[in-house]
Computed example of a mutant assay.
Amino acid sequence: MSIAKFLVRRTLQAVFVVWGVVTIMFGLRAVSPGDPATLMLGEGATAETIARVRAQEGLDEPIYVQYLDYVQGLLIGDFGYSWRSNREVEAMVIERIPATLELAIAATVVALVIAIPLGVVSATRRNEPADYGATLFSLLGISTPNFWLGLMLILLFGVWLGIFPTGRRPVGLVEAIWTLVAFGSAGDLLTWLQHITLPALTLGTYFTALITRLTRSGMVDELGKPYVTATRAKGLPAVLVRYKHVLRNTMIPILTVLGLQMGTLMGGAVITETVFNWPGLGLRLIDALDARDWPLMQGIIVFIAVAFVTINVFVDALYSSLDPRVNDE
């Protein structure tokens, strides 16, 4: 199968996944208790006002008509209006994307910088103290809940030592980089780094542990193959064999997990953003849940689903180029 056909198939699968998420979310909204018009207007609204709002919003239409109207709106980029703030949902989602994206990328960078070297060392020094230490670190990282780790980091580095701030996002990464390039001032970039360090460590700890274990197991498997013996017999340096040949062949499963986890980090930052008051999609989703603002909740979930499947398709394209055998699956 060619790469083009492979990607077309993956894209069609992604479209069906997003459609499924949209349908499930709409179904949950339809069966949830409470009248949407009453939620929009408050308990003190008169029956006439509620009836008028229901007619304006199409809530008095049959459920299948509401569903078709909602899907048609999504196809043209219309996510509706927030019941709480009466703002366009797409605007409320878009304005929070940069903060969540920054946090997800920072957590991924932290994980890769720590996990891959640690996994390589653990695999090449099996049954040594370095291997035991990496294994213990992985076990602790996977077992530690994010919310508890975030609170402990705030308590230690924010309250007791006073090294890092405990929340907020006073400046975005794009603005900080622009300030550095345009004016030669690194103050905003340093401020951004200070504020994102603790949330990135909290969100990236589980990911770090997962990639460390995956790298170690992949490296151990590859180191036992005949081509490694052949490269060593040719006199190639051990570092070159590990990082150019063995690690490259280990990267396909790592890329797969990386793609899946990037999508997961986009949607799974809810707890971390809440703990650190980080103004991203996760924090906005919690606010929408508290207010039972269904259009906003649906918009955020649909965006996360689209981001998740888009990242997966991109990863499929990347590792299909690394391993052509994937195209035949």
Rank of each mutant, 00 (worst) to 15 (best):
M1Y: 01
G20W: 03
V22G: 10
M25D: 02
T38Q: 13
T46Y: 00
I50V: 13
Q56S: 10
E57L: 13
E57F: 04
L59N: 00
P62G: 05
D69N: 15
Q72F: 05
M92S: 12
V93A: 08
I97C: 08
A104S: 14
V110Q: 00
P117V: 12
A130L: 15
T135Y: 11
F137N: 11
M152E: 09
L155S: 13
L161D: 09
G162Q: 06
I163V: 15
I163F: 14
E175H: 06
E175C: 06
W178K: 11
G184P: 04
A186Q: 11
D188C: 03
W192S: 02
L193G: 12
H195D: 02
I196P: 00
I196E: 09
A200T: 11
L201M: 14
R216I: 04
S217A: 14
G218P: 02
Y227F: 12
V228M: 03
T231I: 12
T231W: 11
R232Q: 13
P237K: 15
R242F: 03
Y243D: 13
M251D: 06
I252L: 13
L258P: 01
L258R: 04
L265I: 00
M266D: 01
V270G: 02
T272F: 03
E273C: 02
T274C: 02
V275K: 06
G282T: 07
A288R: 13
D293G: 04
W294L: 15
P295K: 10
G299Y: 08
V302I: 12
V309N: 04
V309R: 03
D316A: 04
S321G: 12
